[in-house]
Design a protein around this nucleic acid. Structure first.
Length: 1011
RNA sequence: GGGCGAUUAGCUCAGGUGGCUAGAGCGCAGCUCUGAUAAAGCUGAGGUCCCUGGUUCGAGUCCAGGAUCGCCCA
């Protein structure tokens, strides 16, 4: 039918192409722009996009995040807000550099510098552009509305300039300082190795571990003996006292600065039994270990001992006399000094240059008192420096393993142990197998190594960070005080510099002699200092800018910024984004240490430097879990379980995928992504919704329904709405209320479940019970009762589409476009969020009574089943207890149960059936049996719903049956759209013939299509 | 090693402040219904609510300890 009012709808939809049409429609008509412009003077709702790095293809996890980003923005738009959302791209950072290194076979920083930093950075820049088109296409296809034209980009010179101004502000407020950081370091390539890369390179290796004797200083051992005497009364003969420490990295011993012991651990002081020796030798170690390490034969226990803060013991250097001030002595630590029965001595050798715990201990000491600089006797290539003991100077800490060709520590450890052995400072060595990080590219061991780094004093801001966090609504809530709160509570200073190339250059220039630091806040400022104009502030150009001041040369520090600082600066650094607090951000949980943190840390630091109260940069955060495959495994290329979003969209369409993600995701929990789940969503929700829509369109077109007819003679309520119509409208009204609440609470899965239940009620209760009102047998004009059915279904379809438009923007738009009343908004996404149709009292009354009616119907059905009376067989009466309030839905009950009359009586049971069958009832039951069979025949014969037919019967000798059916002739012919009723011999082969069994008796039936 | 989260039917998941005879959807079995539907309805089978203790008249829910999985940090 070409002149039908509604566009015909296929009941075998191809959602992929249907959705693509809508995307085209949006583009052609600038619907996204209109959704913002049409709210020009409205209150703003701010959304910040966490910038992805576009140096890889987007995957399903991006579809997940983008679904949740999109839906709330669309909802808020419908609520009337002006929702500005600009895309963003994170262009800097190590991941990009590594990608480029891989592609160009650059193994080390040396290789990069050989290539030239300018060339390298150019390649990095290109690498981030490579997939932007694909990102945009995917974003488009999945119907995520975000403005790419206004995208902020972290490598944009203006963006960098603004980041500079933030750094300057922090520096001027003394929130920035230069310190050190222990990092995983690859001596072979002279680079830092990222955590992710470290994880790639763990290997089990066997190292020579050493039990080393540190001699207590004379003064300290005197004090120790006195203390023991005072505490226990024991007088110990004089003799050297050694602390036994254990290390798996003897090569760090020359850089030792302290020993750590735990005040909670019980130690044992032992004395050597050897009587031939003049000296009485003592050793201190863990009580749990002395028997094993020393042995009862040669050693005796003297006393137990626990270290205290006042002890303040000192010990002698293991090697040639080093500056005494460079030793901190014996320090207490409860966290990393452990007492293990099978390993160590509970005395830990501390080399701050080569371990994070060691460095932390040093830093704490430094805060308490003046201490010397960190001792680091190995350079960044792994060679002992000139300050090292004579026998080590210029030696490498590595040697090549003859078998594997890889580097190892074996040689240097042997040399050092041998040296200590000769000096009597080594108890013994022991092979020790452990998992140790290696450079995953070269296979050589990494070391933990102290490097200079710039820090933001975020530790001092802990309280303020927590205060700001307090004002944030987290979804799920436990992240606030759990994962994120705990992270903030244990927050340390943020190391923001990286010894790399592709990043925002740190805008700090240092005077060569005075070491005076100047922070530069803009390119203009830089020009003022240097007299040089700079267009692109990246390395290496920026490093060429120097100037002289009072004869002193100022040069830039070599580092670039941590790319998290870039993205976290986004509210302040990008022109494209509105400043101020975001109403909403949404990323995966791992961003607690990433973007969630950098946004907060930068905002709070800035506020602090302006002397303002700490406030968060975001009000609501939705944390998403990670996507796993259907078996709970991480998706990875090597496992081959990665799902390509494009294939999903082609197979199912974007909206079904979105709906699956929304309905299957509990906030913050990992989601097991299963194609079977999308299929289920299709069957459970998408197809019922679509089929209900197709049903409406099919019959509305057949009945010539138009917008005018729906709207003229009057409003919905003036039509002859049946009780059941009011019920489904009440359900829609209730749904509106509930769904709105769930949206407001960020409970999107719950909202989706409510919508699914409604569509189920609409499709399987309301439509099923009201089919006949759409199925007009005669061409007579529509009754008001029938019109009311069209009105009701039309209202419900549009209603449910609007309530689910943020979730399924494409399909809801498709339906809206076909059903929307003339003069209504151009797109469903330009409409305003609907108000509930009814008041709650009326809602509750209608829904409550209908629920009772549904219960009655269930009881009736199960009674019929017990009595073995098919629904097709009409019954005369149903008796319902007077206490049951269902009068309003009387007709519904009678129709559903195929019963003629209802009577409310005093009775024990709620429901009782009158099972007596009159001739009339029997003939009607038979008629319905017959109709059912012939309808199937029509269907199987390929006739269309509206085809007219001629009916032929051969009743053979079944006279009784013939009479019974004749009584129902009118009913049967109307139902079957038959224009003639013929009895006798069946016609020739042009008809469709079937043998039908009725009441155990066989008759022959044929139908013939009328042209 | 630390932090956070999870563990409930074959599968995917619901179960504010303790009252549960533990639910839903899918799947399974039987029956029913069907001219919009790739449907639907009814009935049924299927659970030591991860384990061990504790608090309580009462614990899936609260507390302590442990196990396993995931993420983050060491």
């Amino acid at each position: 039918m070409n002149d039908s009012f509604y566009k015909p709808v296929s009941n075998k939809p191809n959602f992929n192409s249907i959705e693509k049409e809508i995307i085209e429609f949006w583009k052609e008509n600038n619907i996204f722009q209109k959704s913002i412009e049409s709210r020009e003077n409205a209150k703003e709702f701010t959304f910040y996009e966490g910038p992805p790095t576009a140096n890889g293809k987007p995957g399903v996890h991006h579809v997940l995040a983008r679904t949740f980003k999109d839906l709330l923005c669309r909802y808020q738009t419908m609520k009337g807000k002006k929702v500005i959302r600009n895309a963003g791209w994170d262009e800097h950072g190590l991941p990009v550099e590594i990608e480029v290194q891989k592609q160009n076979n650059l193994k080390s920083k040396e290789d990069i510098e050989k290539m030239g930093i300018a060339k390298f950075n150019e390649l990095c820049s290109q690498s981030t552009q490579k997939y932007i088109n694909e990102w945009e296409d995917l974003t488009d296809r999945m119907a995520y509305w975000v403005d790419f034209k206004q995208a902020y980009r972290t490598s944009n010179p203006q963006y960098i300039e603004r980041v500079w101004s933030i750094i300057k502000k922090l520096f001027d407020s003394n929130l920035l300082y230069r310190g050190h950081k222990v990092v995983p370091w690859a001596c072979d390539s002279g680079t830092v190795v990222s955590q992710a890369e470290v994880a790639l390179g763990y290997k089990d290796v066997i190292d020579e571990s050493a039990y080393v004797k540190f001699q207590l200083s004379e003064e300290s051992s005197k004090r120790l003996f006195n203390k023991i005497q005072n505490n226990t009364g024991k007088v110990l003969p004089e003799g050297p006292v050694f602390l036994l420490a254990w290390t798996t990295t003897p090569w760090t011993l020359p850089s030792n600065m302290a020993l750590a012991v735990n005040p909670n651990i019980k130690y044992r002081i032992c004395k050597k039994k050897d009587s031939s020796s003049k000296d009485n030798e003592y050793v201190i170690l863990s009580d749990k270990r002395w028997k094993i390490l020393l042995g009862e034969e040669e050693w005796e226990r003297v006393t137990s001992y626990q270290f205290e803060a006042e002890d303040n013991f000192c010990y002698e250097s293991l090697f040639e006399q080093r500056d005494k001030n460079s030793f901190l002595g014996i320090k207490l630590n409860k966290s990393f000094v452990e007492d293990d029965e099978s390993i160590g001595t509970a005395i830990v050798h501390i080399a701050p240059a080569f371990g994070q715990d060691d460095f932390n201990l040093y830093s704490e000491e430094k805060q308490k008192s003046e201490v010397s600089e960190i001792v680091c006797l190995v350079d960044q290539a792994g060679t002992f420096t000139n300050e090292a003991p004579e026998f080590l100077k210029g030696q490498s800490i590595f040697n090549e393993n003859r078998k594997t060709g890889n580097l190892e520590f074996a040689r240097i450890n042997k040399i050092i142990c041998k040296h200590l052995q000769e000096k009597g400072l080594l108890l013994k060595t022991e092979k020790y197998e452990h998992s140790y990080p290696h450079n995953w590219r070269t296979g050589n061991p990494l070391i933990y190594f102290l490097r200079p780094s710039w820090y933001v004093r975020t530790q001092d801001l802990r309280v303020k960070l927590l205060e700001a966090n307090n004002k944030v609504s987290w979804h799920p809530n436990h992240v606030k005080e759990g994962r994120f709160g705990k992270w903030l509570e244990n927050n340390v200073d943020w190391s923001i510099s990286r010894e790399r190339y592709w990043g925002t250059p740190l805008p700090l220039w240092i005077g060569e002699t005075s070491q005076k630091v100047v922070a530069v806040g803009s390119l203009k400022e830089l020009e003022n200092f240097s007299g040089l104009k700079l267009d692109d502030p990246h390395k290496p150009m920026v490093d060429e800018i120097t100037w002289e001041e009072n004869g002193e040369k100022f040069k830039r520090v070599p580092e670039v910024l941590d790319c998290w600082f870039d993205s976290g600066s986004m509210p302040y650094a990008s022109e494209e984004n509105p400043r101020g607090t975001a109403d909403y951000i949404c990323e995966a949980v791992d961003q607690t240490r990433g973007w969630f943190y950098s946004l907060l840390a930068i905002t709070v630091s800035l506020m602090d430097s302006f002397g303002k109260e700490p406030n968060p940069p975001y009000k609501n955060v939705l944390c998403l879990g990670h996507i796993l495959d259907k078996d709970g495994q991480k998706m990875s290329k090597s496992k081959g379980n990665v799902i390509n979003p494009w294939e999903l969209f082609e197979q199912f369409g974007a909206d079904p995928v979105r709906w699956y993600m929304i309905s299957a995701c509990s906030a913050g929990q990992p989601i097991r992504f299963d194609l079977a789940g999308i299929n289920e969503v299709m069957r459970r929700f998408i197809l019922p919704l679509w089929n209900t829509y197709a049903f409406y369109v099919l019959y509305a077109n057949l009945d010539g329904i138009t917008d005018d007819i729906l709207n003229t003679p009057g409003e919905l309520l003036e039509r002859q709405l049946q009780p059941i119509d009011l019920w489904i409208v009440a359900r829609l009204s209730e749904l509106n209320r509930q769904v709105t609440d769930e949206y407001e609470n960020y409970e999107f899965a719950k909202a989706s479940q409510l919508i699914e239940k409604f569509v189920d009620d609409l499709s399987n209760v309301w439509v099923r019970a009201n089919r006949s009102r759409f199925w007009n047998t005669s061409s007579a004009s529509l009754s008001n009762i029938d019109l009311a059915a069209y009105n009701t279904l039309h209202t419900c379809l549009l209603g449910v589409c609007r309530l689910s438009a943020p979730f399924i923007p494409l399909l809801s738009e498709t339906i809206y476009q076909n059903l929307k009343p003339t003069l209504s908004e151009e797109s469903i996404h330009l409409t305003y969020w609907p108000e509930p149709e009814l008041n709650t009292d009326l809602e509750n009354k209608l829904i409550g009574e209908m629920n009772t009616a549904l219960e009655i119907v269930n009881i009736g059905r199960s009674q019929r089943q017990e009595l073995k009376i098919k629904i097709r067989q009409p019954l005369a009466k149903i008796f319902i207890s007077k206490d049951v309030k269902v009068t309003y839905f009387k007709d519904f009950i009678l129709n559903e149960l195929n019963i003629k009359d209802i009577e409310f009586t005093e009775q024990k049971e709620r429901v009782k059936l009158d099972t007596e069958l009159s001739i009339e009832l029997i003939s009607e039951g038979l008629a319905r049996e017959l109709i059912h069979s012939i309808q199937n025949l029509r269907k199987n014969s390929g006739l269309s719903v509206s085809d007219r037919i001629n009916l032929f019967f051969d009743f053979k000798s079944e006279v009784e049956l013939n009479e019974l059916l004749l009584k129902q002739k009118t009913y049967i012919t109307e139902e079957l759209l038959a224009i003639s009723w013929n009895e006798g011999q069946l016609k020739n082969s042009s008809t469709f013939i079937k043998t039908i069994k009725l009441n155990g008796k066989q008759i022959e039936v044929a139908i013939e299509k009328v042209n």
